[in-house]
Simulated assay, not measured.
Amino acid sequence: MVNVSIARRYARALLDVSSEAGRIDAVAEQLSAFADIVAKNPELADVLHNPAYSRTQRAQVVEGVMKLIPQMEAVLANTLRLLVDRNRLSYVPDIARVFRDMADARAGRVRGSVTSAATLSADSLAQLKQTLQKMTQREVILETRVDPSLLGGVSAQVGSILYDGSLRTQLDGMRRELKQH
């Protein structure tokens, strides 16, 4: 069971320190990169999370992974070393997610995802992003996905709000309406 309050405390502390240095976005990017490296390598994750390995062994592995990230921010390197010392490495993915959310909130950004039946052109994506920014009054960072089952149209989720203009949803709505009559 993951304790989100622990992840939030570390993320908030890291945000405060990286804010003083003016390096929030760089730290967010590097922390996500570190979490991705660990997530994509099961053997590495095992060393970092398995209590059978000593703290020294985990520290050596963390130092090795940090070398894979070019010009790692000192505040992040110190935080990762602290997580090793306190046996909190298992919280890195949650800390990365919470940190990114806090950094986005501080910068007035919101993340969203767009799902379409086919790959969107750069112009269509830019227009959609601009429309979502007007609706949310915030900078929108979009992740795109393709789902052929939508048949046509676009479905966008920004924060907790879903904007569904997919053909599949429209057809389902028509089907429900026809069944009622």
Rank of each mutant, 00 (worst) to 15 (best):
L14W: 08
T169D: 04
A28C: 07
I95M: 03
S32L: 10
D147H: 04
D172P: 00
V75G: 02
N50P: 04
S90R: 09
A59N: 11
V75C: 09
L82R: 12
G112M: 08
E143Y: 04
L128D: 03
A122K: 14
L125Q: 10
Q30M: 06
R55T: 12
Q71M: 08
R106L: 13
D147C: 04
R9L: 05
Q60M: 10
S149M: 04
D36I: 00
R109S: 09
R97E: 14
S149T: 15
S90P: 00
G22T: 11
A52M: 10
G165R: 10
A11D: 12
E63N: 11
R175C: 09
L120M: 12
N50H: 11
Q30A: 06
L171C: 05
N3W: 02
L167S: 04
V98G: 02
E73S: 09
N78F: 01
D36Y: 04
R88H: 13
A13M: 08
T56W: 02
A107G: 02
Q71R: 15
D36H: 11
V84P: 04
V140A: 02
Y10D: 01
K129T: 13
I24C: 00
Q30K: 09
A103I: 08
N41V: 08
G173S: 11
T56D: 15
V65G: 07
P42F: 03
L167W: 08
L31S: 10
R100M: 00
M1C: 01
R88I: 10
V146H: 06
S166M: 10
S32W: 03
G159Q: 11
Q30D: 03
G152A: 15
L14M: 06
R176I: 05
V146N: 05
L150V: 13
H181D: 01
H181M: 11
R58A: 06
Y163S: 03
Q170V: 00
I24A: 01
P70M: 01
A28P: 03
L80F: 11
M1K: 05
S166H: 11
I6L: 12
G159Y: 12
Q137E: 13
R12V: 07
A33D: 06
R23Q: 14
Y10Q: 02
L132I: 06
S5C: 00
A77K: 07
V61G: 02
F99V: 06
S32M: 04
V114F: 07
M174A: 12
A74C: 00
V38E: 06
D147K: 01
E139H: 09
L150E: 14
L83N: 06
R97Y: 01
Q57M: 10
